[in-house]
Simulated assay, not measured.
Amino acid sequence: MEKIEITLSFDSEKMEALVIYLKKENSSVQNKMDEALRQLYEQTVPEPVREYLDAKSAAARPKRPPRPSQPKAAAPKPAADSTKQEKEGDV
């Protein structure tokens, strides 16, 4: 599915404080907003509609072609035993 960008306005000093304290939690405003928007979507959009959109999205996604297999290195051929050939020729 195509993604869209959402723009919000927020007080700059509050945003700076939010960034500082979320950093201490190893999180970010982006992560928290993504999570909140996902929760809002799940609470608001009925499950059959979500399932339909998920199925539609999965069908639209092209499957990745399998990776080409790497050819195996050819085993070196054993060298001909010249002494054995010489003996057979002498017989």
Rank of each mutant, 00 (worst) to 15 (best):
M1R: 00
E2I: 14
E2L: 15
E2V: 14
K3E: 11
K3T: 11
K3M: 15
E5P: 02
I6H: 00
I6W: 02
I6C: 02
T7E: 09
S9P: 00
S9R: 06
S9L: 12
F10C: 04
F10V: 04
F10H: 03
S12T: 10
M15H: 08
E16T: 11
E16M: 14
A17H: 02
L18E: 00
L18I: 02
V19R: 05
I20T: 04
I20F: 09
I20W: 06
Y21F: 14
L22C: 00
K23M: 05
K24Q: 08
E25C: 11
E25S: 13
E25D: 14
E25F: 06
E25T: 00
N26P: 03
V29T: 01
Q30P: 01
N31T: 06
N31Y: 09
N31Q: 05
M33R: 00
M33N: 02
M33Y: 01
D34T: 02
D34E: 12
E35V: 09
E35H: 13
L37D: 01
R38E: 09
Q39T: 05
Q39K: 12
Q39W: 06
L40A: 11
L40D: 04
Y41H: 03
E42I: 15
E42R: 13
E42Y: 13
E42G: 07
Q43D: 10
Q43W: 07
Q43E: 12
Q43L: 15
T44R: 06
V45E: 05
V45C: 04
E47R: 09
E47A: 11
E47G: 02
P48R: 03
P48C: 11
R50M: 14
R50W: 05
E51A: 05
E51T: 02
E51L: 13
L53T: 00
L53M: 07
L53K: 00
D54A: 15
A55G: 09
K56N: 07
S57T: 12
A58C: 04
A58N: 08
A60L: 15
R61D: 04
R61Y: 13
R61F: 15
P62Y: 05
K63C: 01
R64N: 06
R64P: 05
P65L: 10
P65H: 03
P65E: 07
P66E: 14
P66S: 12
R67L: 15
R67A: 15
R67V: 11
Q70T: 12
Q70G: 08
P71K: 03
K72T: 10
A74R: 09
A74L: 04
A75K: 05
A75D: 03
P76E: 03
P78K: 02
A79F: 05
A80G: 00
A80E: 06
T83Q: 07
K84H: 09
K84F: 14
Q85F: 13
E86I: 08
K87G: 01
E88T: 02
D90W: 08
